[in-house]
């Protein structure tokens, strides 16, 4: 199996790992969003709780949530390793930094990733850890916990910042994942680039809308 470990530690092998875990997380975001957006349905959380219930009782989702955490961890660790490897390879900065030869997001993926990671810590402390690990409350109460959390304007701002970072991270990451896989050609690339742009605007925007709308409509 040495060929496999050689491959996985090669520059392109690492890129492939980033690409595949990234695409997996992109798919996950869609599922996550589908559930979350139900919070905005004005039925006192009935649809949202129904969705949570369905997810909690589905064994496939149970397995997938472990895969998901693995996906996050691998993506993050590999990202950190690549960051340091590349910083070493670069070896210095120019006196004048050219700005018009690449997008800002593409040059700042590690920074954006770090902000998203910090956001994730807050996000996990808010919901995942108290509910799933500490079992402070059951998933039936999740809706009310979410509504309560987003009464706090600080949280709302943090969530919006997290989602803006996610948007920029995806704006580069989405199409970059396909380029790494070797999917770059006249037939598909224009479509992939457009889809990536749409995805990286719409998905974070909808996510960010949830705390904002909850905050504005549930004032006591």
């Amino acid at each position: 199996m040495s060929w496999l470990s050689n491959f996985l530690t090669s520059a392109i092998g690492r890129k492939l790992v980033m690409s595949l875990t990234g695409l997996f997380l992109i798919v996950f975001l869609l599922i996550h969003l589908t559930g979350n957006i139900m919070i905005l349905i004005p039925d006192e959380g009935a649809s949202f709780s129904g969705f949570v219930e369905a997810m909690e009782s589905n064994p496939v989702i149970k397995v997938m949530s472990i895969v998901l955490i693995l996906g996050f961890v691998i993506h993050i660790i590999q990202g950190i390793l690549l960051y340091f490897k590349n910083r070493h390879s670069k070896g210095g900065k120019y006196a004048v930094i050219a700005k018009d030869n690449a997008t800002w997001a593409s040059k700042n993926m590690a920074l954006l990733g770090t902000i998203i990671f910090l956001f994730l810590i807050i996000h996990f402390m808010d919901f995942f850890i108290p509910m799933k690990v500490l079992k402070e409350y059951g998933h039936h109460q999740l809706y009310h916990k979410v509504i309560a959390a987003f009464q706090n304007p600080v949280y709302v701002v943090l969530y919006v910042i997290g989602m803006i970072s996610l948007g920029f991270h995806l704006a580069h990451g989405f199409q970059s994942a396909f380029q790494t896989l070797g999917v770059n050609n006249e037939k598909y690339s224009p479509f992939i680039k457009k889809l990536g742009m749409l995805y990286s605007i719409i998905v974070p925007l909808l996510f960010a809308l949830i705390p904002v709308v909850v905050f504005l409509t549930h004032q006591k």
Binding site: A11, I12, K15, K85, S89, T103, S106, M109, H172, T180
Partner: peptide
Amino acid sequence: FGACSNIGA
């Protein structure tokens, strides 16, 4: 040499 991250510069 480093690992490409598809920056495109």
